[in-house]
């Protein structure tokens, strides 16, 4: 039993899995170096990320699962749920030991895996819904900020590319501090130091006008006789209001 430490990347986690199998050991825990500083562990076994090994692990998983496994595991990883790393490890171990068990929802790791998959699926769906673009003044560019509870950016770009093929846009994850920029050709991941971010000035009068129209619309379609705050909050939890044009106080 050992604690394995990796760099926080998906490839890093896959490398840990490779090493653990190599050592024929079951990790006690798998943690990302970000948390290592928290001081708990001088004795952790640090694994250097190796893309080739990571690739081998993925192929091994897909070979056993009719190509369903690698995507599921990627989703689990991005879900950032507590214990995701260890659940991924055990799921892979189960796949290696027992073959394709992904349709066996009675298996505890499979059940957990789909719970995590569902969790991030819900967050992806929420972000498809809750992204609110603002048009940047004097530029042909739309900008949105989100605060998702899972790391969804790598999964949502395609949806917006299909929808907004003819406009440039940026979606910025304020929790994880990075974004996607679509330049009419492709999506690019951008970091806080990207020069483009400095050009995003205050919105225009015209932008304010459309935002106000949307707020007015939102308020007009409410039916007072049917007020149902519980349902409203279940669908639109308060933690998302900050970036929702129709909900934040203006």
């Amino acid at each position: 039993m050992a604690t394995y430490c990796y760099d926080g990347s998906f490839e890093g986690l896959l490398t840990v899995i490779f090493r653990a199998f190599e050592h024929r050991s079951i990790p006690e825990q798998i943690i990302s170096t970000e948390y290592k500083q928290l001081g708990l562990l001088a004795s952790a076994f640090t694994v250097n990320t190796d893309e080739l090994l990571a690739e081998r692990v993925l192929r091994g998983i897909d070979k056993r699962t009719d190509n369903r496994g690698s995507r599921l595991i990627y989703h689990m990883f991005l879900s950032e749920q507590d214990g995701a790393e260890m659940t991924i490890f055990h799921l892979v171990k189960n796949l290696v030991d027992k073959g394709d068990i992904l349709s066996n929802f009675g298996n505890p790791y499979v059940a957990k895996a789909y719970q995590m998959d569902k969790m991030i699926g819900r967050e992806v769906h929420r972000m498809h819904a809750f992204v609110r673009f603002q048009k940047v003044a004097d530029a042909d560019m739309y900008f949105a900020i989100i605060n998702p509870s899972c790391n969804v950016l790598p999964l949502i770009g395609e949806h917006f590319v299909k929808r907004y093929a003819d406009q440039k846009w940026i979606i910025w994850d304020a929790v994880r501090n990075y974004g996607i920029y679509y330049d009419l050709q492709r999506e690019i991941f951008i970091e806080p130091d990207h020069p483009l971010l400095k050009t995003l000035v205050e919105s225009s009068k015209q932008e304010d006008c459309y935002q106000q129209l949307w707020v007015d619309y939102f308020n007009s379609v409410n039916i007072r006789e049917r007020k149902n705050t519980k349902l409203h909050l279940r669908h639109m939890p308060k933690r998302y209001w900050r970036y929702l044009t129709e909900k934040h106080s203006r």
């Binding site: 819904a129 349902l231 279940r234």
Partner: peptide, 11 residues
Amino acid sequence: ICHSYTEDGRC
């Protein structure tokens, strides 16, 4: 996609 929900909980 339901982009928002009114206070009566409708999409």
